Simulated scan of single mutants.
Amino acid sequence: MAENKKLTLKDIARALNISVSTASRALKAHPDISDETIRTVKEYAEKHNYVPNALAINFRKSRTFTIGLIVPELVHHFFSTVISGAIDAAKKMGYSVLVSQSNDVLQDEITACRTMLASSVDGLLISISNETVEGNHILEFIHEGKPVIQFDKITDQLQTPKVIVDDFEGAYQAVKHLIETGYDKIAHLRGRREVKNAMERALGYEKALKDFHKEFHEDWVKECKLINEQEGYDFAKALMESQNPPNAIFCITDLVALGAINYLKEAGIKIPQEVGIMGFSNWKLAEIVNPSLSSVDQHGYQIGEKAAEMLIEKIQNQDVSSHETVELKTNLVLRESTNLSQK
Rank of each mutant, 00 (worst) to 15 (best):
P246F: 04
M310Y: 12
D234K: 14
K92S: 13
V121H: 09
A29R: 11
H177T: 01
T66I: 15
E215F: 08
F59R: 14
K185N: 12
N130E: 14
E144Q: 14
I252G: 05
F151Y: 14
A286K: 03
E305K: 15
A236P: 03
L255G: 05
S337G: 06
I312S: 01
V175R: 01
E144D: 10
V71A: 08
A118W: 06
K185H: 09
N247D: 11
D297Q: 09
E194I: 10
A308H: 08
H30L: 06
G170D: 11
A90D: 12
A54Q: 15
T253Q: 05
L328W: 08
F280W: 02
C251K: 04
F216R: 14
M278H: 02
E144W: 04
G232N: 06
V71S: 12
L125E: 05
V320M: 10
E309V: 14
S80E: 10
I57Q: 15
E266C: 03
N53I: 03
E305T: 03
V82N: 09
T115F: 11
K10N: 06
K284W: 04
I33E: 03
M116Y: 09
A174F: 04
E109N: 12
K47D: 13
M278P: 03
E169R: 13
L55K: 14
S292D: 06
I252L: 09
L27E: 03
L311P: 08
L285H: 03
E180F: 00
G191I: 14
K270T: 01
S129P: 09
L334F: 07
P272H: 00
H77M: 05
Y95V: 07
L293F: 01
E274F: 01
D88W: 06
E231T: 00
R192E: 15
I87V: 14
N136F: 01
M93P: 04
Q302A: 11
S21F: 03
Q230H: 05
C113Y: 07
I128Q: 09
V256K: 02
I227M: 13
Q342H: 08
G300W: 05
K185F: 06
G268S: 04
K265G: 09
T40R: 12
D122N: 09
S322Y: 04
A267E: 06
E324G: 14
H48C: 00
E266P: 03
N339T: 05
R63E: 12
L264V: 00
T330F: 07
I303M: 14
E241Y: 01
G268I: 00
K237T: 02
A112L: 09
A171H: 02
A248W: 01
A118S: 15
N136D: 15
E266V: 03
K306A: 06
M240E: 03
I70G: 01
N228C: 08
C113E: 04
I110V: 15
